[in-house]
């Protein structure tokens, strides 16, 4: 605000000096300069206020230009009228000033136009920053909601059933019961810890998936078998934490919970030119799956998460072959292991 006032005073003095040199006396030059510049301040502030509440879109910048011309013309006529009232009878003043109108108009236009452009740029930047902030917040909220849902979906049913299995084993097969308690604890710990971490090695993610599958094997006995084929160099690649968990849960839900026979669930991962490709395969019941909506929560949440991370919708593909459901995920790698993108 202070530099603004100072430059305004300087400008008033400059105009006064210019008018003095054209032949007006000091007092006439001062009056003229103060009156015209005060009105110009008013017009510029008016323009600024308009921009604050009504910001033209990029395609209507012409409107802004027209507004500047209208306001400058208004300013010019008002100044002229006011000076007429003050120096109506002063022939000396009138004769000198009448010739200066083109330059005065041009200067007025440049000043109010300049201020408008500054205002436009400023408010535009502010609006953009606001939009950006809102977007980030919305994404954060979505993510939290999804994680919450994921946790809810995972925990109660799975957890109580696992505890029930342990309960059954304690009497007859205590060693197995103990083993299962350890697996369950390790699995739960890994899912809790991972929420704070952003990216993990595939190796780590697969380890907790194996724990999960082992627990399901105890619950369902010989019905479930698994095949896990991971390339050694794929295991070293990075993956957003818990990305695969919902996919494997989905495979279990359709392949194991909803079928009556033996079930094979397979996981594959390969490293193709530095990119990670993962495939999850499970059988499903054609008859009951037809009555279920879409592909289930698991798949859509992974799809959404991949979109938030990479702004791509083509990273997750699904396919059905007779009674086999296949999910394929491609995970682009973060470029620097130290400075990875936030999940």
């Amino acid at each position: 605000m202070i530099p603004f006032c100072i430059s305004w005073f300087i400008w008033i003095s400059v105009q006064q000096l210019a008018l003095y040199q054209m032949g007006l006396n000091w007092f006439e030059a001062l009056t003229d300069s103060v009156v015209s510049n005060s009105l110009l301040i008013y017009v510029s502030l008016l323009m600024f206020t308009i921009l604050r509440f009504y910001l033209p879109r990029t395609n209507s910048v012409l409107n802004l230009f027209i507004w500047v011309i209208i306001l400058t013309t208004g300013w010019f006529l008002a100044t002229d009228k006011l000076m007429d009232l003050i120096y109506n009878s002063n022939q000396h003043y009138q004769s000198i000033v009448k010739n200066t109108w083109p330059i005065r108009f041009a200067i007025g236009f440049l000043i109010s136009g300049g201020i408008s452009v500054i205002g436009y740029a400023y408010f535009n930047w502010q609006e953009r920053a606001e939009t950006e902030k809102k977007k980030t917040e919305a994404e954060q909220l979505t993510k939290e909601a999804e994680l919450y849902k994921l946790r809810q979906q995972l925990q109660p049913h799975f957890l109580f059933n696992a505890l029930n299995s342990i309960n059954a084993l304690i009497g007859s097969r205590p060693a197995e019961a103990r083993n299962m308690v350890q697996q369950l604890s390790e699995f739960l710990r890994s899912t809790l810890k991972k929420e704070e971490q952003q990216w993990v090695k595939l190796e780590e993610e697969v380890h907790s998936l194996q724990l999960y599958l082992e627990i399901e094997k105890v619950r369902f006995g010989h019905r479930l078998s698994t095949r896990i084929e991971m390339d050694a160099d794929a295991l070293q690649l990075q993956i957003p934490a818990l990305l695969l968990q919902p996919l494997v849960e989905n495979a279990i839900k359709f392949g194991l919970y909803d079928t009556t026979g033996d079930t094979l669930i397979s996981l594959k991962a390969i490293n193709e030119k530095g990119e990670l490709f993962i495939e999850v395969e499970n059988p499903f019941d054609v008859e009951t799956a037809a009555a279920q909506k879409g592909t289930g929560f698991g798949i859509s949440s992974v799809q959404r998460r991949l979109y938030l991370l990479f702004e791509r919708n083509d990273l997750l593909q699904t396919e059905t072959k007779e009674n086999i459901f296949i999910t394929r995920v491609k995970v682009p790698q973060p470029y620097l292991p130290g400075a990875v993108k936030k999940v």
Binding site: S165, A168, S172, G221
Partner: peptide, 13 residues
Amino acid sequence: DDEPLARSVVKEC
């Protein structure tokens, strides 16, 4: 019940 262990708990009870 679809879980053998869950059935064994009921049997025991």
